[in-house]
């Protein structure tokens, strides 16, 4: 027992520091992916609820493709495909050296596309809850489409979509563990290195699981806080 504490500690021979750096990478990646995924997801949802059939088709294709692919495969497609793509562009520009793309950026884009395809569904169902009268009221007092969207629809939309988005955040947090497969030093990778060196696999992978649980619990607190804050500005019924 004391041995395990020393192994997980921050002292000499302890892996605490490297695991802590892994936590930092995981949290940074998830936080960096979130705005990207939310923004794309919102616009895809806008496309899906539009009356223009071509826009609907294009948005639905996006969701179908990125919800149908395994997350790990999307990650590899973005990572290796991006590498080949960047290499080709480099060759066109006359650069023949090897170009490596950053695994953090690749992970961010891959997880962002997956997140956004799920988020678009959450936003879409939130859009459907908001009655038409809200738009018409906005136009009636002379607001433009953009103003109506920003000042009337969006605040309500976020409040309705919040529980669904909270779930997606928890899924995103778990999905970040996949980036260890393309060599990013996240929680799972750092604990895997520690497990291989110390031969204490159960201890370290168990630690990784506990860290993810704790991150999930902390997120739930934050999400609940945001939920309460958002509910306060809602209409009292």
């Amino acid at each position: 027992m004391e041995g395990s504490i020393a192994l997980l500690g921050f002292g000499e021979g302890g892996w605490g520091l490297s695991i802590a750096s892994g936590i930092l990478v995981t949290v940074t990646l998830a936080l960096a992916t979130l705005p990207l995924g939310l923004a794309i997801g919102f616009f895809v949802a806008l496309g899906k609820q539009s009356e223009e059939p071509s826009l609907k088709l294009a948005s639905n294709m996006y969701t179908t493709i990125f919800r149908g692919l395994p997350e790990l495969l999307t990650l590899f497609l973005v990572y290796y495909g991006g590498q080949i793509g960047v290499q080709k562009i480099g060759q066109l520009l006359g650069y023949s050296g090897a170009i490596e793309i950053n695994s953090f950026i690749a992970g961010m884009f891959a997880l962002g596309t997956v997140f956004s395809s799920y988020a678009s569904e959450v936003f879409l169902s939130a859009f459907r809850v908001i009655p038409r009268g809200q738009y018409e009221g906005g136009y009636a007092i002379g607001l433009s489409y953009g103003q109506t969207m920003r000042k009337i629809i969006l605040p309500q939309l976020i409040r309705i979509a919040l529980p669904g988005l909270g779930n997606l955040w928890l899924i995103l947090l778990k999905d970040t563990a996949l980036v260890s497969a393309i060599g990013l030093a996240d929680i799972l990778r750092q604990t895997a290195v520690a497990a291989r060196v110390t031969k204490q696999a159960f201890l370290f992978y168990g630690t990784a699981c506990v860290i993810f649980l704790v991150l999930g619990i902390l997120s739930s607190f934050v999400i609940n806080g945001i939920d309460r804050w958002a509910a306060k500005s809602g209409a009292k019924r």
């Binding site: 778990k174 696999a201 990784a208 699981c209």
Partner: peptide, 18 residues
């Protein structure tokens, strides 16, 4: 609450160490 991949590693490598 934990990633599936961490669970797989925990069972394959973790229990494998026993």
């Amino acid at each position: 609450g934990t990633p599936l991949i961490a669970q797989v590693f925990l069972i394959y490598y973790g229990l494998g160490s026993f």
